Simulated assay, not measured.
Amino acid sequence: MTYQGVLTKMETEFSTPIQYYLVFENDFINLNQLLDKTIAIQFVGYQCLNCKLNKQIYRQGFCKSCFFDIPQAADWIMHPELSTAHLGKEDRDLEYEKRVQLQPHIVYLANSSNIKVGVTRKSQVPTRWIDQGAHEAIEIVEVPNRYLAGITEVALKDHVADKTNWRTMLKNEIVDENLVDWRDRLKPYIPEEVLDYFIANNEETNIEFPVLKYPEKPISLNLVKTPNYQGVLKGIKGQYLIFEDGTVFNIRSNEGFVIALSVM
């Protein structure tokens, strides 16, 4: 059976283990059901997630002209401390920015390859943790806007990482940590204006991924260089498909690519 469509990040369902779905315009696939099956991926073309045109993807699933124009790709997306909607100041589209920035946000600790600090909208918990391949996570503060979350993340980055080592995450070279202790240790570094939003009595969330075999030396699949790939699916973690030969495919970083996916 062959499916064709434009890649967007896998949808997830929080269960044990996580359920993964690849959603196309007219089809969706429960990828957990494809474990131990041979699948083929063929690069067909591009479709910008904004303008829908067959234009080369620049970043985040958008063509270059859209990336530098639309609010969904503005700097405050990756750097929440740059948010200005709470001041009524427009970056690219104030209405959009108010809708996204002026809602509850969570600053969290997640353990995927190491302890890292991150920011997400409250509505994206635990999806954000799943997408990062974190096997455990905990909320630190819940604030009413993205700016306050951003300045908290910046303050904590001096004391804990803010990046995931994707190779370590995929090899499952992980160490369980006491995230409650980490949360309490980091409290003194939270900005004074955010301290009232500190979450004191929660427990960590644990996440189990559907992986039959972890790769010893993960090799990232580049569809431009390798437009046809075939392998046995052995696992799904974060936004990666893991294959028996050690190949891994990051769905998120290939958003906007049109593929044909065949199940053998």
Rank of each mutant, 00 (worst) to 15 (best):
H79V: 00
H79G: 00
H79M: 02
P80H: 01
P80W: 00
P80Y: 01
L82E: 00
S83F: 04
S83C: 09
S83K: 01
S83I: 00
T84L: 14
A85C: 01
H86E: 09
L87N: 04
G88H: 02
G88P: 11
G88M: 01
G88E: 02
G88C: 00
E90H: 00
E90K: 05
E90V: 03
D91S: 09
D91M: 06
R92E: 03
R92F: 12
R92A: 02
D93K: 04
L94H: 03
L94F: 08
L94D: 04
E95G: 00
Y96L: 07
E97D: 03
E97I: 01
K98D: 02
K98R: 15
R99W: 03
V100L: 09
Q101V: 00
L102R: 09
Q103Y: 06
P104D: 07
P104M: 10
P104I: 00
H105D: 12
H105C: 05
I106N: 04
V107I: 06
V107G: 10
L109S: 05
L109G: 04
L109A: 06
A110R: 01
N111C: 12
S112F: 11
S112R: 11
S112Q: 04
S112T: 04
S113Q: 10
S113I: 12
S113G: 12
N114P: 01
N114Q: 15
N114A: 13
K116S: 10
K116Y: 15
K116I: 04
V117R: 09
V117G: 13
G118D: 11
G118M: 07
G118F: 03
V119A: 10
V119N: 13
T120E: 11
R121F: 05
S123V: 13
Q124M: 12
Q124F: 11
P126L: 04
T127C: 02
R128Y: 07
R128I: 04
W129P: 03
D131W: 06
D131L: 11
Q132E: 15
Q132C: 07
G133Y: 07
G133C: 08
A134H: 11
A134L: 03
A134D: 13
H135T: 14
H135M: 13
E136Q: 15
E136K: 14
E136M: 14
A137L: 00
A137Y: 08
A137W: 06
A137S: 14
A137V: 06
I138L: 07
I138M: 05
E139Y: 03
E142S: 10
V143I: 09
P144S: 12
N145L: 08
N145D: 14
Y147K: 12
L148M: 13
L148C: 03
L148N: 08
L148I: 11
A149W: 05
A149T: 09
A149F: 03
A149D: 10
A149K: 06
G150C: 01
I151N: 07
T152K: 13
E153V: 08
E153P: 05
V154S: 06
A155C: 08
A155L: 12
D158G: 13
D158A: 14
D158T: 13
H159S: 13
H159W: 10
H159A: 10
H159M: 05
V160C: 15
A161F: 12
D162F: 13
D162E: 12
D162T: 10
K163G: 11
N165T: 02
N165H: 10
N165Q: 11
W166T: 02
W166K: 08
R167P: 01
R167Q: 14
T168E: 12
T168R: 15
M169I: 04
M169K: 00
M169V: 04
K171C: 09
K171R: 15
N172P: 06
E173W: 10
